[in-house]
Nucleic acid binder design. Structure first.
Lengths: 227, 227
DNA sequence: ATTTTAATTAAATGAACATTCATTTATATT
DNA sequence: AATATAAATGAATGTTCATTTAATTAAAAT
């Protein structure tokens, strides 16, 4: 899709236009929500005709998917810069954490959009468009760390959830300017550093905490009463 | 708003209708997204006239806010049942964790809606409608645990993010049927139990892990280059 | 059965929606 | 300057949107 035949006689395309479309689309989605976003409004604020948008995108859904892919690629490009899966675990985790934190703090709209997208019915389609190299690298890093006994044995999804979702959640509070309680909240570098330290403690082998078993999936049919 | 004057001669209101409106609204929001949700479609599937919806809700935004409040109240009612902030930390955390996990697994649409709502421009308005008793109880529990040296000293928001966001993230993967990599994923009780154990390890005092300082907030102006 | 009232509705409103179409514009080569 | 081509558009399409209006319905006390 990205490569088009170049004929001898052509009007040159204005790359600023497509950039404006992406930029204003992101802004509108974050500020007005997925409802509240429309092609006609986008065309107006981006300074193009609605028809121009349909030159670059087959429809509204395609625009959203392309925008998502673009943001994901930018994000992972930043996160993976100078990362080497052969790093020892604590170093590699700190690197990932630092890069992720930097990006989502400095590009809070983009981060908000990417997270919001995960709750959209478009998610399955977006998942198929992802560059697999990033997650392959992540998985290699985790597998090696487990093999080297630097990381507790666990499924990749558990690792990811413990390692990174606290970070994203803190940034979400920060961007909203409030925590769950509705009180004002401002994130600090000290909080981020402490969170990384806690996460690393959780993931490093040793001192496993005994907890009561959680049973809610295999038993869901036996407990239909939730009132 | 909830209490209306009861006159002598009145047609009785059909509570099934309002229940159908809430139920179908939730379903539509989860399955078709916040765009894709409309009053006219809702009226059709709920089996009422669009005008009926405007008897109970002043407008679309009010409907969304009321639905959100209702779901939050149901959720926190379930989570807080049998919880006592005077419980010792490990017991209280396990209780909270278990109740949260049960609810969000068994009411995955409701959970999806509540999380999705956090990315909506309506969030600030919703925050003002929240029952403060829940977060007061949570804060009391955390403050006491820190005072008793059962919990590392940290801001409430850091506690919440480390303690619960991994759970919500795992359930999000589970509901989507895929992890970030796009691969199939099914959550198990064992994964949940392990995650709780890891979280408890992170939060209990002792063995603080040294990590490099994260600096991205106070230095954001000094590093405008993110390419 | 009548009365009173809120509950409920069908139908209508104008605005905004996604998308298309017929046309014009800009450009690199000739 | 003429030409071929994609880039870009303004205006229109029919649809769906949130919301309102005027009228009807149902219930419970009389």
């Amino acid at each position: 899709m990205g490569s088009t035949l170049i004929f001898a006689f052509m009007r040159t395309r204005d790359e600023n236009k497509i950039e404006a479309i992406y930029r204003e689309a992101l802004k509108m989605l974050v500020n007005e929500g997925f409802d509240g976003f429309s092609i006609q409004k986008l065309a107006k604020v981006a300074g193009v005709s609605p028809a121009t948008i349909y030159i670059y995108f087959s429809d509204k859904e395609d625009l959203l998917l392309q925008l998502h892919k673009r943001e994901m690629d930018k994000y992972f490009g930043y996160v993976m810069k100078d990362f080497d899966p052969e790093m020892d675990f604590a170093t590699g985790l700190a690197h990932q954490w630092k890069r992720r934190a930097e990006y989502v703090i400095r590009h809070s709209d983009e981060a908000h959009f990417m997270e919001n997208f995960r709750f959209t019915p478009l998610l399955p389609k977006a998942a198929k468009m992802r560059d697999p190299r990033f997650s392959e690298m992540m998985k290699r890093f985790v597998t090696k760390a487990i093999r080297n006994k630097e990381l507790v044995t666990m499924p990749f999804e558990v690792y990811w959830s413990v390692a990174f979702s606290p970070l994203y959640n803190l940034v979400r509070f920060h961007k909203a300017g409030m925590s769950l309680t509705g009180e004002k909240f401002e994130l600090t570098d000290e909080m981020l550093t402490q969170t990384l330290s806690l996460v690393l403690k959780a993931l490093k082998p040793g001192d496993e905490e005994p907890v009561p078993e959680i049973t809610c999936i295999n038993t869901s049919l036996k407990h239909p009463d939730t009132k």
